[in-house]
């Protein structure tokens, strides 16, 4: 019997090995290598690197380019997290009510999420450029009131944020709809029986029931926001004058444009530390909120 068990365990181990091999080659090894590279003066793909201690990290924390990208990323993430959450919540309340053609509406709101971010970005470049100009011409708005959507330092980040919200809101809406369906029908019906109106039901039953889901969506939105790359790369290449250069784009530029791979990896490790601290904190915070509730 024991021999049989041992044989069985060997089979289970054999089942795990292929995935483990792939995982170690394309994730674990590059991850450990990243930690090492961030401590070296690696340049391009030159295999010769020298250990330079924490010099890269010291430089990152003093570098105005990196600090700027950190600021840009934080502002962008805050904007997208708040606005996308609000819109997704609103849409989910609408579609949870007695709307007709629910499935069609759900598909329409989700549609942008199916498109590649590259395509989404270019469509919005077109909207902010040609389409906006056509509208302005058509409505004969005087030039003084024109908005430079992507050319203005302050506006460009918001324009990018609007694009991101349009693309992702449908995704978070689906999570909220599922969350609303988890709230017992009986609870809602009982409240309605007691004379609660639509608003009261939303305010006192549906919204409190969704609080854990709001927490989770915020974690997802914040981590996605910190990793934003495609939209600024395609829409503005990080401009004007670095106003939309996110951390991910900054890492890319440092590593592949300036070829300072060691230094870029130090920035990338800092990104990793920020994201893991943030998610850890948020999950902890969320867990405590649930215990209280």
């Amino acid at each position: 019997m024991q021999k049989w068990r041992r044989k069985q365990n060997a089979v289970y181990l054999a089942f795990i090995i292929p995935a483990l091999l792939f995982f170690c080659t394309f994730f674990l090894y590059p991850f450990i290598k990243s930690l090492w590279l961030s401590l070296t003066d690696a340049y391009g793909y030159n295999p010769r690197q020298h250990f330079i201690g924490l010099k890269n990290y010291a430089e990152v924390l003093k570098n105005p380019g990196f600090l700027n990208s950190l600021k840009v990323t934080l502002l962008y993430t805050a904007f997208v997290t708040v606005v996308a959450n609000l819109i997704a919540l609103g849409l989910s309340f609408l579609l949870d009510g007695n709307v007709r053609f629910k499935k069609i509406f759900r598909a329409v709101f989700f549609l942008p999420n199916l498109m590649s971010l590259i395509i989404v970005s270019f469509i919005w470049v077109f909207l902010y450029g040609s389409v906006y100009r056509s509208f302005v011409d058509w409505l004969r708005i005087p030039e003084d009131f024109w908005i430079s959507w992507l050319g203005n330092r302050k506006m460009a980040l918001i324009s990018m944020g609007i694009t991101a919200v349009w693309q992702c809101a449908g995704y978070y809406m689906l999570i909220y709809i599922a969350g609303l369906q988890n709230i017992g029908r009986e609870l809602v019906e009982a409240a309605q029986m007691d004379g609660a109106g639509t608003w009261a039901v939303i305010r006192y039953i549906k919204f409190p029931g969704l609080i854990p889901v709001i927490g989770m969506n915020s974690v997802l939105l914040i981590t996605a926001g910190f990793k934003t790359f495609d939209i600024p790369m395609a829409m503005t290449s990080g401009g004007p004058a670095g106003a939309t250069t996110t951390i991910a784009l900054q890492i890319y530029n440092t590593g592949f444009r300036s070829n300072r791979t060691g230094y870029a990896t130090a920035q990338a490790v800092i990104l990793f530390l920020m994201i893991s601290c943030l998610t850890g904190l948020l999950y902890r915070f969320q867990g405590r909120g649930e215990e209280k509730g």
Binding site: F27, F31, K227, Y252, T261, L271
Partner: peptide, 11 residues
């Protein structure tokens, strides 16, 4: 927890 950009260069 590890963003793609962290391992990008080493990968």
């Amino acid at each position: 927890f590890v963003p793609f950009h962290t391992i990008m260069i080493a990968l």
